[in-house]
Computed example of a mutant assay.
Amino acid sequence: MDESFGPEYLRPAQADCPRCGCCTAALCEKGRTSFLGCRGHVDEGHRETVTGCPCSAETTRETAAWRMAQVRVTRLAAELPLTAEAELLLRGLATGRVGTGADGGELLPQLRVRGLVQLVHGMPAITQLGYTYLAARDDVREVTAVRVVDVDRKRRTARVAVPAWRPDELVTVLLDQVLCDSGLDLGSLPGRELAASANCAARSADRLVLTGFRDARTAPAPAVEAGAGHGGGA
C-alpha cells in the first residue's frame, strides 16, 4: 500500500509584470528601486532572462539605475572628462556634423564603454547619457542650499527642495547617494539643511543633477564647481 505523506506545497505563482515579458510584477517593483536592476535580485539561473529588463534599466526615467547613471555621467564630465578629440566626436554625433558611418577609430569604443554612444543598425548614435554628459560639460554648476523634505525608505529615495532652482518644486534623489556623500545617518535627514553641487539653470527636474551632498554647516561658500561651464553646447 502506498503511503501518503501529505500535500505537496508549492510556492504560489507571482503575477507577471504588465510592462515587460521577462519578470514578475514583484521583481520589477524591486528592480526599479535598485542600482542592480532586476538582474540583481534573481538567482544565477534566471539572470540572463531578466538582464536588460526595461522596467529597471538605466535608460528608463526615474529608476534607481537611471538616477545613478545621471550622477555618474555628471561626475565624469566634471572630474574625469573625455579627451578633447573624443568630446569633439560626441558633439559631432549630437549635432549631426559627424556622419553615422564614421568609424571613430579608437574613440568610439571609449564612448560606448561609458554608455555615451551606442550602435543603431551598426551605426554610431549618441545616447541620452551622451546628451547628459555634454550638458554637464556646458552647464554652470554651483554649490547651493538643499533641504531634505522627506525620505522614502522602501523606494530608497529622498525628496529635496532646491530654492536656487525652483523654490516650490521638490526633486527626487537617491537616498543612498545622500547618505554616502554626507556621512549623515538616515534618521537625521528629514528637515536637514544640506549643500550640494547643482546645475540650477536646468529646465526640468529630470535635467537637474545634484552631486556632492554635505552638511550645510561644513559646506564651503557657494562657488562655481571646477570643470563645469565648458562652451559649445550640443
Rank of each mutant, 00 (worst) to 15 (best):
E48P: 00
L108Y: 05
D215H: 03
E62S: 12
R61Q: 12
R141A: 15
A26I: 11
R67N: 00
R156V: 12
P124C: 13
A145Y: 03
A78C: 13
R75G: 11
P190G: 10
D215E: 09
R214C: 14
A15P: 03
T63I: 04
R39Q: 14
T49V: 15
R39V: 13
R97W: 08
D185M: 04
V113Y: 08
D168P: 01
L129A: 14
V71N: 00
L170M: 10
V171Y: 04
V149T: 08
G37Q: 02
A216D: 07
G92T: 03
T83P: 05
T211H: 01
A78K: 01
L10M: 08
D2R: 11
G115N: 00
G115M: 03
D168N: 07
D215Q: 05
H230A: 15
G130H: 03
A216V: 05
C22I: 13
A69M: 07
H230N: 13
L88M: 09
V140M: 09
P220A: 12
G191W: 06
A201T: 13
A94D: 02
V160T: 02
A64P: 00
P163Q: 01
L184G: 10
L170R: 03
E79S: 11
V224A: 12
T60E: 06
L184R: 09
E87D: 07
T51I: 08
M1H: 07
H121T: 08
T127A: 09
T95F: 07
G40P: 05
R166E: 05
A158R: 00
A136R: 03
F5H: 14
A205M: 07
L80W: 05
R32W: 14
R19N: 15
L184M: 14
T218F: 00
A15L: 10
K154E: 13
L80K: 09
D185V: 13
A25V: 11
R114G: 03
P7K: 00
G187R: 06
A221Y: 01
A161K: 01
A201V: 14
R61L: 15
R91V: 08
R166H: 06
C180N: 08
Q128M: 14
E193I: 05
R203L: 15
D150M: 12
S56L: 05
A195I: 07
A145Q: 10
C22Q: 06
Q110I: 13
L194N: 06
L93R: 01
R61S: 14
T127V: 12
E8K: 04
R155S: 11
A198E: 00
T211R: 03
A205F: 05
A228L: 11
E62F: 14
E225L: 15
V171L: 12
V146D: 02
E29A: 14
T211Y: 02
V162A: 02
Q110E: 14
G37C: 07
E44S: 08
C180M: 10
E142N: 05
A221S: 11
P163M: 02
C38E: 06
A13K: 09
G45D: 06
A202K: 01
V209M: 01
R67T: 03
T132P: 00
E29V: 14
D176Y: 02
G96E: 06
L88T: 13
A228S: 15
K154A: 15
